[in-house]
Design a protein around this nucleic acid. Structure first.
Length: 377
RNA sequence: GGGGGUGUCGCAUAGCGGUCUAGUGCAGCAGACUGUAAAUCUGCCGGGUUUUACCCUUCGGUGGUUCAAAUCCAUCCGCCCCCA
């Protein structure tokens, strides 16, 4: 099977949820899947071994960051990103469009590509769809993404349309560049659907992307400030126009409730910085809701973060100790909470996959939220 | 014994006649975080209430000077330094 190909195993009779398998060079991924984010090639504070033991199936890296530092020469010498970071399972790289468009004050965009300033040293760089493909081929992840514009929110209809059409044009160029050599034998290129919150633009983008024809499709331009209702509508207005036999990836999402909502609407893949970022900031996801472990109430709670979790943090440490680690700025705190939150998201998706096997999505959802929202805060 | 200095909101500091309930940092109490320029950011942090302004009470103690004192004076108390 070709890298990036998707096998639909089972469809829910209750909703649009799907159980599937995604084939990649470095392994088969069970979907729906949550992908921890390791922007700079490292999932912040978490080791590759810990990720492996957490049953992570695939992690992300960002080609913008890797390109700027350490630079492609080092990645080439290392023999690719997975040799470099010792993660031997599947990886996905984002194109860097998100960074260039949303994080740089200085940037010049034209139909050719985008000029931008490095956030590290201010140096100027230019990335076009073609260059992005070259960068991502060099980095060597199993799945790579088209260079697109992550349309900001809110955007006017006119801006969103122009932006979406530009991303379509760039997608065409990405594909052409990608298939110039035999990279497709080991890598998969996904197209990214844009169109902001506009129903017809999402549909148009989805259909035009299929005209170009990609092995998998992502829905981009979400979780950029819109409401959860709007995000759900975007998925509802996009997923039906995507082919059943290809993977669907909702970029940058999300919170546990977003994962349920996305899967219910036919999404197979998610990635999000929340488990690690929020973990570093003291928030832990638990079976009984979110808690901020830094809060005073946990000073003397000599119990696991989540009694129903068997991750290293929950097996071996208590809330009181992790509270102490945060208060005394011990670095172990960052690792333990990031690790736990990643486990939470991975266990959540595993639980959903299991429910889909027995076609009991809504029963599982109800059970999850009865506990998850039982905590008053 | 002689001389000099100092005492400010839990801690450390700023303030040195009005714009001071008093600035800043830390600590404390909460909240936010969605394709990571994030071990970050935001709010609260004397008491009371109609939570919105207002009232009451603070700058070691006491007593003064002054229209007005954290700021000036006297004195007491506590610390610190130098010389004997």
């Amino acid at each position: 099977m070709q890298c990036g190909e998707f096998q639909l195993i089972k469809k829910s009779t209750q909703c649009n949820a799907r159980l599937g398998k995604l084939y990649t060079t470095r392994g088969i991924i069970d979907t729906p899947v949550f992908m921890p984010v390791g922007t700079q090639g490292a999932v912040k504070s978490v080791s590759a071994r810990q990720l492996l033991e957490s049953n992570a199936q695939i992690i992300l890296a960002n080609s913008y960051h890797i390109y700027l530092r350490p630079g492609l020469e080092i990645i080439k010498k290392a023999g690719g990103i997975q040799k470099f970071n010792s993660w031997n399972k599947p990886m996905l790289t984002d194109s860097g469009g998100f960074q260039i468009f949303s994080l740089n004050d200085f940037r010049k965009i034209n139909s050719e590509g985008a000029e931008f300033k490095s956030h590290i040293d201010g140096s100027k760089h230019f990335i076009s769809p073609e260059i992005s493909m070259q960068i991502q081929k060099t980095i060597g992840a199993d799945i790579i993404m088209c260079f697109d514009e992550c349309t900001p929110y809110p955007s006017t209809y006119d801006y969103a349309k122009k932006s979406m059409l530009m991303s379509i044009d760039w997608a065409r160029r990405c594909k052409e560049e990608f298939y110039k050599d035999d990279a497709y034998r080991t890598q998969a290129l996904f197209g990214i659907i844009q169109g902001s919150v506009y129903k017809d633009l999402r549909k148009e983008s989805a259909l035009k992307m299929q005209d170009i024809d990609f092995v998998g499709y992502a829905i981009g331009g979400v979780s950029v400030g819109e409401s959860k209702e709007e995000m759900n509508e975007v998925v509802e207005n996009t997923a039906p126009y995507l082919p059943e036999n290809k993977a669907r990836y909702l970029m940058g999402v999300g919170m546990p409730e977003d994962i349920w909502d996305g899967i219910e609407r036919g999404i197979d893949m998610f990635d999000c910085v929340i488990p690690t970022r929020n973990g570093r900031n003291g928030q832990a996801f638990t079976t009984y809701g979110k808690i901020n472990i830094k809060n005073g109430e946990f000073k003397d709670k000599f119990e696991p973060l989540d009694a129903e979790c068997d991750c290293e943090a929950c097996r071996e440490y208590t809330k009181a100790y992790i509270n102490h680690l945060f208060r005394s700025q011990e670095l172990l705190a960052l690792n333990l909470l990031s690790l736990h939150n990643i486990n939470f998201m991975l266990k959540l998706t595993a639980k959903i996959r299991k429910a889909l096997e027995t076609d009991s999505f809504f029963e599982a959802k109800k059970e999850f939220f009865e506990k998850y929202y039982s905590r008053k805060s």
